[in-house]
């Protein structure tokens, strides 16, 4: 059984492509995330919304790292330490759930 993960692609009014992930990301389903990212080829930055992800490990991080040039992340406090520790937070913009939180981390 793979870990439960749903990736929903949408587009914000400003045209930003959004990939909203719900569930857990581990080795068993990182490939699904990779496919979603690869398919979201809008020419601009993709916003990966991880705010509903309860679990993220190095398999998911590896996928995110491979697209680090063109993604921005929205994270939640639960997975934030992982992003910080892995150094991903330094390479891309990470927004919090809230706007003001997002500003703090989105430098």
């Amino acid at each position: 059984m793979t870990a439960p993960l749903t990736v929903v692609a949408s587009q914000r009014p400003d045209g930003t492509l959004v990939l909203a992930c719900v569930g857990e990301i581990d080795m068993s389903n990182a490939g699904a995330l990779e496919e979603a990212l690869a398919g979201a080829d809008g020419g601009g930055t993709v916003l990966v919304d991880l705010s509903a992800v309860e679990y993220l490990d190095s398999a998911g991080l590896t996928v995110l790292f491979s697209h680090v040039e063109r993604i921005r992340l929205v994270a939640n406090p639960l997975i934030e330490p992982v992003l910080t520790i892995s150094g991903l937070a330094e390479l891309t913009t990470v927004e919090g759930l809230t706007d003001d939180k997002g500003e703090d981390v989105g430098q």
Partner: peptide
């Protein structure tokens, strides 16, 4: 909750490594 998540990830990494 934060420490629980830390333990979950660390254990998950160990298990993933063992599998992979």
């Amino acid at each position: 909750p934060a420490q629980m998540q830390n333990v979950l990830v660390a254990a998950g990494e160990a298990c993933a490594n063992a599998i992979e």
